[in-house]
Design a binder for these strands. Structure first.
Lengths: 345, 345
DNA sequence: TTCGCCTGTGTAACCGGTTACGTTGTTAAC
DNA sequence: GTTAACAACGTAACCGGTTACACAGGCGAA
């Protein structure tokens, strides 16, 4: 592979001149520049970005560290990030912590010297640990994680308000025996959603200790919850699953048992995965614009990299929108609720 | 940020010794090593991967260049790649050509010096152009692309055989008026699938010039085809869509028109997107294990990087499997067809 | 004792670019 | 006719690591 010195020699100039010509800096006469360009073509020289970033102290790359790559949640995030990154000519270096805390540290360390900034999504990592791993000199934006004590910028989804709004909507339909299928115990999103549900039940309908079935965000765990319901151990006129995936499993099980949705029981989910509107009946759910999560975080990172101070905008909370579909009868949702769930845009 | 020289100074040794101690090479006494390690901890030194890869001439990174990041097809590929890459401690640098030929060149060039190898998926790029852009010195594996004249290793899906098998299965059910909804004209996958369909109709049922409706892989184009069918302009006892997405649009339109599937007409798709089995009725389709596409390519690349010669294995063709579901009546498919579509494991 | 070899460590070149600074030659200003 | 200013270009240091080679000291063998 040709190097800059090869090009310089071929063009009969010094490396400095060659570099300047190639990068379009001033102080190079047209004929000299032409000679250099000819040499570039002839040797088909392509600049070595690794070497370049070493001196420029700039890599034009951001590191993206996700807990996993499974499912469309992550792919949508990546797409959102890429959308913005691409516009700014940035590249994406993917790091996958594969669920392990130890690997998180390794993934972050491996980014040193290869990225200008970091986008990290550490769903179940304690803030103190995270602070330990992170390089304070490296601009970092957290994804779907409220840094709390750490004063790192982050963008998150308002799971609490989303769950609250959905519960409110179900209550507005006259439902009282609403069962929640929870997500993984240690998962922040899951906990916030559960809190939103519990609070809405208490505040709006004065129902304390509403029924909550365990789940882990998987389709199968939704199906399990469905079997519990069907066996009649739990009276329910509506089921609010902490994510769509579980709602899918639940509905399959209800159908098996001959239960009609929304005739016998209403069903609601959370996330609005593409599958949701294709189900039969289509699934009422809280729409989270996942790609927005990624693109917003990337925009924040870019601003930091440009030296702007984020100021008050150092945290962005995305509010999910309620999408009413077939599983709750499909009709309109009270205007107040719809407004509460509306995205600022 | 601390550099190696800082560490060396702190530990009272030379950079060479510090480097050796950190990298666990021999020829360092235990006390010296301990001193270096203490300095590393104290300054919390993290090696600068950029600088390191410059001398090692190894980046432990592979570049992945995809035409787009939209939808789960690509996310599944990335997941497959990551699975294998992660095991080997490799990182992924994402490049997105965003559909443009010009950007493809830029994306490939930008990879120079930052990756040890390339995984490229150039769905509608002419081989000659591709050869132009690619650096012959950089190990490259093509995704879903038969390099043909170029002797680059690649992994692809046997779209032809898949479509042939599906058509055969429909014919075996006694269908004769089978309509194919084609994909984009310039798309290789689409063309191969169409060829498979046409050939199967001709060879097995002696039907030449079977009905083919235009489409572009989008749900809407499937719906459009559905409207054409419903208006009775085309008699059909089965419809074979070139991908699942179009089958989804088609089925929605058929349902609108009160047509029963599979009562009035059978429907089949291609890809087996997760949505397929959740449709009502569930969609019969050719299952393509997309993540396998990525992981296989990555494994091939790793072997090249290790210096192994691929020999005859420089091309891998993944054969899709027929999954019979509700839209074709759900029952068994003739054994021969199932076998023809079976993956080698 | 002398030579050879091995071990632990240091010096400096190198990877492939960028860029501060110095040099040369030209032109404008006095 | 000097000098200053400036444009075009070259030299070499530098980014932060790795590593070939040199070197000093210790030890066993002859």
């Amino acid at each position: 592979m040709a190097t800059l010195r090869d090009v310089a020699r071929e063009a009969g100039v010094s490396v400095a001149t060659a570099s300047r010509a190639i990068n379009g800096l001033g102080n190079v006469t047209a004929p000299t520049k032409a000679a250099v360009m000819a040499a570039v073509k002839k040797l088909n020289f392509v600049p070595h970005s690794g070497a370049r970033s070493l001196t420029r102290r700039k890599t034009d790359t951001v590191g993206v560290i996700l807990p996993d790559l499974f499912g469309e949640f992550f792919s949508e995030i990546i797409r959102g990030i890429d959308l913005v990154a691409h516009e700014s000519g940035m590249h994406l270096l993917l790091g996958n912590m594969h669920g392990s805390t130890h690997e998180t540290a390794a993934a972050i360390a491996a980014m040193r010297g290869r990225v200008d900034g970091l986008l990290v999504m550490p769903p179940d990592l304690k803030p103190e640990l995270l602070a330990d791993y992170l390089d304070p000199a490296l601009p970092t934006v957290l994804l779907n994680y409220d840094a709390g004590s750490l004063d790192l910028p982050f963008v998150a989804v308002d799971n609490y308000r989303g769950a609250y709004a959905m519960t409110e909507a179900l209550l507005a339909r006259g439902m009282r025996q609403i069962v929640h299928i929870a997500g993984p115990k240690h998962n922040r999103d899951a906990r916030d959603r559960q809190r939103g549900f519990v609070d809405a039940m208490a505040k709006i309908a004065k129902i304390s200790n509403p029924a909550i079935l365990p789940g882990d965000f998987s389709e199968e765990s939704g199906a399990q919850a469905g079997r519990l319901l069907v066996q009649g151990q739990l009276p329910a006129d509506a089921v609010f699953a902490a994510n769509d995936q579980m709602a899918v499993g639940l509905m399959a099980e209800l159908a098996n048992a001959g239960k009609s949705v929304p005739g016998d029981v209403l069903v609601a989910g959370f996330d609005d995965i593409p599958l949701a509107r294709h189900l039969n009946p289509s699934l009422t759910t809280m729409q989270v614009k996942i790609d927005r999560l990624g693109s917003t975080a990337m925009m924040m990172l870019l601003r930091i990299l440009r030296g702007e101070t984020l100021g008050g905008a150092s945290a962005t909370i995305l509010t999910p929108t309620l999408v009413a579909r077939g599983t709750t009868g499909g009709a309109a949702i009270p205007a107040t609720v719809a407004a509460a769930g509306a995205l600022p845009t």
